[in-house]
Simulated scan of single mutants.
Amino acid sequence: MIHLLSIALCALGFLALGATQKRHQHTVFARPLTPREVRRGRAAGVALLALALGGDGATLGTGLGTIAWTGHLSLGAAMVVAVLHWRAAR
């Protein structure tokens, strides 16, 4: 169960980071974001990724948790890239 939660946190974190990029703002929000919204989105993305690392480390131990986290990061990033690409193509 921790793996699904961590993958979801990583995906949400990368979505927050990706949505704040200029080229994806119109695709996701249909408008450009203010600098304040960009800062908040990036901070939220980093916080979600850190929360996933903390959860993995707390439940699986430091060594295995870090290894699992890198796999969760990869899967979460791949999902976000696929969704952003699909939304941009529409």
Rank of each mutant, 00 (worst) to 15 (best):
A43C: 08
R36W: 11
F29V: 00
L33K: 09
G57H: 05
A77G: 07
A16P: 09
K22Y: 01
L64R: 12
P32C: 02
V46M: 15
D56Y: 05
H3I: 12
A50Q: 10
L84C: 10
G76E: 04
R90G: 12
G57E: 04
G54E: 00
R36T: 08
A88T: 01
T70L: 12
P35Y: 02
G45M: 00
D56Q: 11
A47S: 15
L12W: 03
A19T: 00
S74C: 09
R31H: 07
L5G: 03
L73M: 13
F29Y: 15
L64P: 04
A8Y: 06
A11R: 01
L5I: 13
G45F: 02
L17G: 06
L84I: 01
M1G: 11
A50W: 04
T34R: 14
P35C: 02
R40S: 14
L4Q: 14
E37N: 08
G76C: 03
L33T: 13
G57M: 14
W69Y: 06
M79L: 12
T70F: 10
G63P: 00
H24M: 13
R23I: 06
G65S: 07
R39A: 15
T27F: 01
R90Q: 12
Q25M: 03
G57Q: 07
E37S: 13
M1I: 08
G65C: 10
A30S: 10
M79E: 06
M1C: 06
I67P: 00
G76I: 06
C10T: 08
R40L: 15
M1Q: 09
A68S: 12
A19W: 10
R23K: 13
V38Y: 04
P35M: 02
R90T: 11
G54Y: 00
H85Y: 14
